[in-house]
Design a protein around this nucleic acid. Sequence first.
DNA 1: CGTGTTTGACCAGCGC
DNA 2: GCGCTGGTCAAACACG
Length: 484
Amino acid sequence: MDRGWGLTLDSSDQVEFFANKPGFDRRRSGLVMFPSRVEETPEHREVDFFAEKTKKPFVKNEDSNPEPSAARDFDVNIGLQLVTANTGSDQSAVDDGEGEDKRAKSELARLQAELERMNVENQRLRGMLSQVSSNHASLKMHLVTMMQQKASTQEQEIADRKCEDERKDNGGGARQFLELVPEQSNSVSEERTVSGSPQNNLDATRSKRTGREESPESESWAPGSKRLNPTNANQQSIEATMRKARVSVRARSEAPMISDGCQWRKYGQKMAKGNPCPRAYYRCTMAVGCPVRKQVQRCAEDRSILITTYEGTHNHPLPPAAMAMASTTSAAASMLLSGSMPSADGLMNPNFLARTILPCSSNMATISASAPFPTVTLDLTQSPNALQYQRPPPHFQVPFPVSAPPVFGQALYNQSKFSGLQMPKPVNDAPQLPAPAQPSFTDTLSAATAAITADPNFTAALAAAISSIMANNGNHTPNNNNNS
DNA sequence: CGTGTTTGACCAGCGC
DNA sequence: GCGCTGGTCAAACACG
């Protein structure tokens, strides 16, 4: 897998900017270059997208970079210095002697200082982002309050009108009025529900359901379920949408299941029509009653491709290894839903999301609204070469904290990041942004920040994501992957 | 014995 | 209404 994607899976701040420098000696540096040995062999290892960064599952298999980050700091510098000095022959290193050595040391010192500066900048930007998040939260609260006030005002107006009509007609208006008011109230609460936690919605939905879903364990987000009390059609559709939101991940793996850090229990297997490979059903067993489930199935066309579809939001704290996936899927689902929800005020539609959130990855990530369920599909099966053609020059790699391809990390993971999720490392090269002359992590973050403020589409998308996820935070429990 | 997997049965939605 | 399909349940089974 790592071969195919050519990713450096370490999540440290050490972005490997120099990987594509001409003459760069990867063997010496220990760096994993972006286009590593692409498709050298078929994939035979389990995809471990979300292992803890310390595990470096991709790296360990080949092109290994086992050194701790401090050692890699050194590697970076080596990469810079030895590229030119030693490319030709390892034996000729003594030629230049002290001069070269001094230069190397000074350069090393300079780069270390730069690194520190970047770290500081990173911290600063993180702070900014969290402040933006909190500002957004307060604004959101304000908005909700205003909406409530507006709704109550409308109620009052309608009530007044009805009273007038009643006086005129002296008829059955009173009953209508009585019915109308609760509806209005419902609409207000719905807005809150929509922007609230998917989990809460799920719970609310479940609590209404009858039939065999009696125990938490057997609670189901079964898409087919129609057993909802006829409280309000709109609410039903909202809840149904929340329940059905899915994030699908396509990845090459010979293993029966990708390792995403969560514990799963298989509860069923079915042969799906049109696919000789069975589809397996898993539910999260990290907490009793966790509604998250996933389906795992091999692609009919290419059986080396594993399609994993996640649904639901965890209702329990997650281990770091599982955070990234959970956050990503949750954020993706939230993004998706916020784009399809009435409460989004038409802010976004799925296509807009696809273009905005995943601008560099039209082939890699798609958002489908036409499918039975709103689904974000992340295609991780493409080679890094293909990626590079879609991306700006790969001067810098996204230090995605988990073993996932860049697009996955950049796009959806960003949503998680900006929603206040506690992620090990900052991210992001906003792909549509002009690449900095000398790309650096700081530049990347700056570019992302600039994009937030400059690009209204980007801002809108982020706002929606933050909105939905922050609402989750507000309502939720310990969960939602962002126990920061 | 506890936990997880397998697998046939059951249920609901959907299309005809 | 009927059959197909997807999703889930739960008893039986396997395993440590």
